[in-house]
Write a protein that binds this DNA or RNA. Structure first.
Length: 677
DNA sequence: GAGCCGGTCATTTTT
DNA sequence: TGACCGGCTC
């Protein structure tokens, strides 16, 4: 099922230990394999101990998978101390240890994008989401360029930059006051620390003697600096990447880092992996055709031995509802015909908002599905409610957490009291939690309002004192009981079914916390500090469930599926209109490339003639990328002069439907073509 | 201080 | 079409 042996370039990449190495790994060329085997090689043959090796990925999921796969190559003893984590977790680990050097306490909070956005909204005095997002991303890009607020303020030469710079200044002050960091700080601050304190840097250089960086094309300036500083003059690292799959420029990813690597490390060795073990020739040819319209940094020609395969289908639909229906019908017909399983299919789309209509269509047909990415478990309101309490326990300076916790469930502390508290605390530069205890403030407020506030604070203080010693799960259970969370959910929700789901989510969180605390040997406070970085629920056996996978194109990177539906292939969506306006079509093309190369055996591209947007019907054009695929590899359906949409599948669809509902006992054959990458 | 209703607005991608 | 915010009333 997996590529039986390592091919020569893969082997070369694994064995090369003489200096810095860049592996240009095309889609499906087995890059994860190279990284995992290289880790094993470093430990077994390279004489480097696991605790001196760090493999860096971009998602927690990728990190987890990588750890799992290394675990199959080595004994637990050999693995001990190995670091496999995201840039952000690595940065956090460093900062927890070095926080005092930077004027932070080790128990600082980490704000996710949502909480950070709220602070920006407050300082900006607006609720316009679009504006907030733009300012937020501007600030983020600045931070990733090591620009201080003062610097941006001086350099601002237009009104917009000026507004952003002033917001940046206030925002950063607020973060400091809360003892909080955002995602960018987790990378930026270690670098700044290393610049200031050479002996701290040296310590970390000695600790992490060999680095492996996955998805190198997605590193931003900060991340590259971090790598550069950590590897130092030794330059002992392997960076693995693919310039054609760089899809995070909007987040600060800097493709130039690939070129910089050559410049900064003249000894850099480059190895290309060009054999694809994933897709059929036709799929690969289509992908190559699309991407060939982009300028090339490194010449690279992907090839496959997996046979010609079926032509790619392009299906024109009447509107978005019709598209969902067509995709589901085709999926069922295909499944029936090829005796596959639901888990062999994926529906990929450009924006999360597109998922809804497909979910609906799948539900209508009782087809099980599983969404990757999208709204994370930890973003659900009921989960954020509980987490607010935990965050507050871990860091009493976390004012946003204080406000959320003290008002959820409602306990008689209202806007009036909070405003007074905020004003009093603000003047004295104290946290809300600290201020609530102080006599000066308490004298200003009537006893009736003070009482619930005081109880709240005392309750939390007591819990906090116990947290280091007592089991995390039990403590949270007790907390929930004390605040009457379950009852509150049922009271405030008009549908008991929704309340039930929410309560189940909360229970899932508690169970997860208990398990995780046990496994990692962490107490509740320590565990809480890592949660902001976790985006997907860990430990879910995703591959095991027989369900259609749904994912954004971005979240699908690194994954593969036997049969892929890439939907919404329209001008305005893919490429996205904003990107077209900003001259970012090349990145959209790479996104298309990523989408196409997820498919192992069959690929269907769908698009609509018209689509409802903001309540209005709008006519749309098929994506330009469709035209870039060679005529002999694509078959059109549903457009004038082409084959009808459902052709032969229509007659079978009812049957397919039926068999789907019966659960199809027959051995569903997964199309395990190759090693997942 | 808390819940309800109506008007307004918008849809990229994520650690 | 739907989500979310803010102002209104109890």
């Amino acid at each position: 099922m997996s590529a039986p042996q390592l091919n020569p370039p893969q082997r070369a990449a694994i064995h090369y230990l003489d200096g810095p190495l860049l592996v240009l790994a095309g889609a499906g060329s087995g890059k994860t394999r190279v990284i995992t085997h290289k880790i094993a090689h470093l430990i077994r043959e390279g004489g480097i101990s696991a605790r001196n090796i760090a493999a860096i990925t971009f998602t927690n999921k990728a990190a987890r998978e990588m750890m799992e796969r290394v675990g199959k190559l080595l004994t637990p003893g050999e693995l001990r101390g190995l670091t496999v984590s995201t840039f952000h977790s690595l940065g956090m680990q460093m900062l927890r240890l070095e926080a005092p050097h930077l004027g932070y306490k080790p128990q600082f909070s980490i704000l996710d994008a949502f909480d950070a956005g709220k602070i920006i909204a407050d300082t900006l005095g607006t609720t316009a989401r679009d504006e907030i997002r733009k300012v937020q991303s501007r600030i983020s890009l600045w931070k990733n360029d090591f620009k201080s607020p003062q610097q941006t303020l001086t350099e601002a030469d237009n009104d917009w930059d000026h507004v952003c710079a002033r917001t940046y200044l206030a925002y950063q002050d607020t973060l400091t006051a809360y003892q909080a960091m955002d995602f960018d700080d987790l990378i930026r601050l270690p670098v700044e620390l290393f610049r200031r304190e050479p002996e701290v840097l040296e310590r970390w250089q000695n600790r992490l003697r060999y680095l492996l960086i996955d998805e190198y094309q997605d590193t931003n300036t900060c991340q590259y600096q971090l790598v550069k500083m950590l590897t130092g003059v030794r330059g002992m690292f392997t960076a693995v990447g693919d310039d054609d799959q760089s899809i995070y420029a909007w987040r600060g990813a800097n493709m130039d880092n690939l070129r910089l690597l050559q410049e900064d490390f003249p000894r850099l060795n480059i190895i290309k992996l060009e054999q694809n073990y994933r897709s059929t020739v036709r799929i690969l040819r289509a992908a190559n055709a699309v991407i060939s319209n982009n300028p090339k940094l490194f010449e690279k020609q992907l090839w496959s031995e997996l046979g010609l395969g079926e032509p790619i289908h392009a299906v024109q639909c009447k509107d978005d509802e019709h598209e969902a229906e067509v995709v589901v019908q085709r999926l069922l017909a295909h499944k029936f015909e090829h005796r596959t399983a639901f888990k062999d299919y994926a529906i990929l789309y450009r924006g999360n908002y597109q998922s809804r209509i497909f979910e609906q269509a799948l539900r209508n047909q009782k087809i099980p599905y599983q969404m990757a990415g999208g709204q994370s478990f930890f973003d659900k309101p009921e989960i954020k409610d509980v987490l607010a309490y935990l965050r507050l326990l871990a860091n009493p300076n976390d004012d946003p957490a204080f406000i959320r916790a003290v008002t959820t469930p409602k306990r008689g502390v209202g806007a009036g009291t909070l405003e007074k508290l905020g004003a009093w605390a603000g003047e004295r530069k104290k946290s809300l939690f600290a201020a609530a205890h102080e006599e000066g403030f308490r004298m200003q407020v009537q006893a009736a309002q003070l009482e619930p506030l005081g109880q709240f604070c005392d309750f939390l203080s007591a819990l906090q004192a116990r947290a280091p010693r007592e089991p995390a799960g039990e403590l949270v259970e007790e907390l929930l009981k004390a605040i009457g969370f379950e009852a509150w959910l049922y009271d405030s929700e008009d549908s008991p079914r929704i309340a039930e789901t929410k309560w189940k989510n909360v229970q899932e969180l508690v169970a997860w916390l208990a398990r995780k605390a046990e496994a990692d040997g962490k107490n509740l406070l320590e565990l809480t500090q890592t949660i902001a970085l976790i985006t997907m629920l860990e430990g879910r056996e995703e591959g095991e469930v027989d369900a259609v996978k749904m994912s954004t194109l971005h979240a699908s990177k690194g994954l593969e599926y036997p049969h892929v539906f890439l939907v919404g292939c329209e001008e305005g969506i893919l490429p996205h209109s904003e990107s077209v306006d900003n001259g970012m079509v090349e990145e959209e093309r790479r996104l298309m490339y990523v989408g196409i190369t997820r498919a192992q055996r069959s690929l269907t591209l769908s698009y609509c003639v018209k689509r409802k947007r903001a309540g209005e019907w709008q006519f749309v054009e098929p994506s330009r990328f469709l035209d870039e695929i060679g005529g002999e590899d694509i078959r059109h359906f549903g457009r004038p002069g082409a084959e009808p949409i459902v052709s032969k599948s229509e007659g079978k669809s009812r049957l397919a439907n039926l068999s789907a509902m019966l659960g199809e006992k027959g051995k569903a054959r997964a199309a395990g073509l190759s090693d997942p990458d």
